[in-house]
Structure formats: C-alpha cells, structure tokens
C-alpha cells in the first residue's frame, strides 16, 4: 500500500507534489530525452512577457559557493509565439502546465497576459512572477528598485487586477529580498491568490578580482542553489504561520532530504530549480524518495507532513 502523494493547489490537482521551477526547465522540450516528463507533478514554464525579450548581455551566469548567480533577463519569445510554438508540446505531456508571466514595469501587461491565458484550455494555472530580480536594472545601478513583490500594496493591487480576469489557479511568486515576507504573502492572499510560491532568487554578486570586473554583466544577479536553502526554508516557515493558502516551497532543493525539509516547514508542494541543471532527473528521484520516506515511516498521506515540524 503506497502513500497518497496527491495534493491540491487551488483548483489544480497534482498527482505528486514535486514541480519544476520557472526558468530552470525551459519549455520542457530540452529535457525530453533525459526523464519521463509525464511523471512530474507540474511543470512551470520559463517566464513569458507580453512582447518578446532578447535578455541580458553575457556573461549571464556564474558559479558561487554551493550556488550560482544568474541574470538571464527573462529572454523569451513573447506570449503569442509561446502559445503558438511552445505550449502545444508542453500540454501534450500530460503533466499540469503552469505558465509563469512577468512584466518589466506595467501591471496592465500582467492583466493582459492573464486574460489571454484564461482563454487557453491547455493552461492549468498561472504564476505571477512579480519577483524577478533581473529586469529593469541598468548596468552598475546595483539592487533593482521597486520589485512589485517588495511592496505589499503593489502586490495586492497587481494580484487583484489579475484575479479579476481568471478562474484558473493563480499563484504569486514571492521575492526573498524583503524585510518581512509574510506581509507580502498576506497581501497576495487577501487579493485572491490561490497559492504563493517562495522563494525567487536572492540578489547577489561576485567579482573576478584579477579583472576587477563583475562575474555577470549586469553586476547583480539572482543567487540560487543549496547556498540559499536555510534562508528559503526559514521564509517558508514564517509564511506558513501567517497564511491559509498553500505554499509551493523552493530554494536550493537538491534531493529528497531537502525536499522533505520544505514540507515539514509548511510547503504543500515543492519546486526543484537549480538542481535541474545539475541532475535533470532529480525531480523524479525526489518523488520516489518521498514515497519511500512515507512508506518507511508508515505515513499514509503526504499532506500529513505539511507543516508537521515538531517544536
């Protein structure tokens, strides 16, 4: 008798609670030969914007201690070409498809994209990426000013304006680059978000001391990987105390052990990000590992370990 791994995020029912995070799994086609894509709990697309973006200058990534920095700059073909060229393959896989959307500085663009996606039955849910640290930032300016996810009022009004246009599951992706993340999560919940996903990457930088140059062209990028895991986990735990809607937890999950930490801290589902680059089949290894853990500990349902941290 195998444990139940099904979870519900808003209207979305997932066969298992392991998703792949936006920006780390392309449009899934890149991974076709490397794992059985049908078995992933849900696939979150690379973030799409209304018009296409060519992305940031090179170098865009560098490795850091137990992590990596990236500043890709949301390179994507734009929503129409995404729907024409990328979505049909994604939708053919059978895993629920969550489309991630963003805009540089225009809440109206978010709403326009949500409206467009609402009409497409292949899209199962929408993730509002209000926390990408790599757009709207000129070279040398350092920390980007004013992510939507850094302001509870802006978060509330953005989510509210999108909520109006969709009955699909709406997920709000939060930034860790804030003083109090639960305040932002509460704003998203109040505005009608069905779930929150946290965390996006941490602002960070790295310097080549010989050249005296930043290792990525945009100077500051987003830090991900196991280096951020303890902070991400703490944020999930903090948010879990404050909100009712489900949390999709992420931040440096590399294996089943680290995935379980996020469930115990309060995540209803987890997302694998940077680890997809290191081991493309890690998401399915984690699904297997969760099943083994539950069976071994005679736990019948994944939902019973969500937030089950003993104090």
């Amino acid at each position: 008798m195998s444990a139940n791994l099904k979870v519900r995020i808003g209207k979305l029912e997932l066969a298992n609670p392991v998703m792949v995070a936006s920006g780390t799994f392309g449009y899934a086609e890149e991974f076709t030969e490397l794992l059985d894509l049908r078995k992933i709990g849900a696939i979150v697309s690379k973030t799409i914007t209304l018009a296409g973006r060519e992305g940031n200058p090179m170098p865009r990534t560098c490795e850091t201690p137990c992590g990596m920095l990236n500043s890709i700059g949301l390179e994507n073909p734009g929503i129409e070409r995404f729907l024409e060229q990328k979505l049909s393959y994604l939708a053919s896989l059978g895993s629920p498809i969550i489309v991630s959307v963003a805009s540089e500085n225009d809440p109206g663009e978010f709403a326009a994209m949500v409206k467009r996606l609402e009409k497409d039955s292949r899209v199962m849910a929408i993730e509002l990426n209000i926390s990408c640290p790599n757009i709207k930032r000129a070279r040398g300016k350092g920390q980007g000013s004013g992510l939507i996810a850094q302001d509870p009022k802006a978060t509330y009004s953005l989510v509210k304006s999108c909520r109006r246009f969709t009955r699909k599951t709406l997920i709000t992706k939060l930034s860790p680059n804030v003083t109090c993340i639960s305040e932002i999560a509460l704003a998203a919940q109040a505005a009608g978000s069905d779930a929150v996903s946290l965390v996006n990457t941490f602002s960070g930088m790295s310097i080549d001391v010989q050249a005296k140059r930043p290792k990525i062209a945009c100077v500051v990028g987003g830090l991900s990987g196991p280096a951020i895991r303890p902070i991400a986990l703490r944020m999930v735990w903090e948010v879990f105390q404050k909100i009712r809607i489900p949390i999709i937890g992420m931040g440096g999950i590399m294996d089943v052990q680290s995935a379980l930490e996020f469930f115990l801290a309060g995540s209803s589902a987890i997302s694998v990000g940077t680890a997809n680059f290191v081991n493309p089949r890690v998401s399915l290894e984690i699904v297997r590992g969760i099943r083994d853990y539950l069976d071994k500990n005679k736990i019948k349902d994944i939902r019973s370990i969500v937030g089950a941290l003993k104090l």
Partner: peptide, 8 residues
C-alpha cells in the same frame, strides 16, 4: 549552467 538549452 545546464548545457542542454534550458537556462539560456
């Protein structure tokens, strides 16, 4: 990073 065309 990925080597397979996903991360850009």
């Amino acid at each position: 990073a990925c080597g397979i065309g996903a991360c850009l």
